[in-house]
């Protein structure tokens, strides 16, 4: 066990875990932030997507010891303009079914829009194909991203 101070959603959090503990479990079990989900543990499904210094990462495959002083943003701390637009579009389109993957989907979609305000379908495919939705809500994810992009115009 070792002590780490992680900066999560702007707050320093002292956690005491083995250094190889994936960031996902530090966020969930130690920091008690449960919006970020476990789906595969091997960076295949994207349910655990968070930002490290603004970049989307798979927190299931990032050991706590590698996070250092980086800023971690989870779904609970997603306050960006793009994030809010994506969440509003998710609700407007009634995207979620079981909902379990959607924190990760929202994080990936918000990141896409922050880099590319007007994504094409191909851009969406590229940015979002690391996020599995077993309910296959993909039709609405696509539509909601386009809606969110539109809402962010001007």
């Amino acid at each position: 066990m070792a002590a780490f101070t992680l900066k999560i959603n702007g707050e320093p959090r002292r956690i005491d875990v083995a250094p190889d503990t994936p960031l996902l479990w530090a966020i969930r079990d130690s920091a008690g932030l449960t919006g970020t989900k476990y789906g595969c543990g091997v960076a295949q499904c994207g349910a655990c997507t968070v930002y490290l210094d603004g970049q989307p990462i798979r927190s299931c495959s990032m050991p706590v010891s590698a996070v250092g002083s980086g800023e971690v943003t989870t779904i609970e701390g997603l306050n960006s303009r793009e994030g809010k637009a994506v969440q509003a579009a998710w609700i407007a389109h009634d995207v979620p079914q079981c909902g379990y993957c959607q924190s990760g989907q929202v994080m990936s979609a918000a990141s896409l829009l922050s880099l590319n305000p007007k994504p094409t379908d191909e851009d969406i495919d590229l940015a979002m194909n690391g996020n599995i939705c077993r309910c296959a809500t993909y039709v609405r994810i696509r539509a909601a991203i386009h809606s969110a992009a539109k809402s962010l115009e001007g």
Partner: peptide, 27 residues
């Protein structure tokens, strides 16, 4: 009619079994 669960499933608040975290609980 809009789905009643869309908002909580879009901002991480929706509560699942994996999220149960009682203080004296063992995983």
């Amino acid at each position: 009619v809009k789905r009643l669960d869309s908002a909580d499933k879009s901002d991480g608040k929706a509560f699942y079994t994996l999220d149960i975290n009682e203080p004296d609980m063992l995983t």
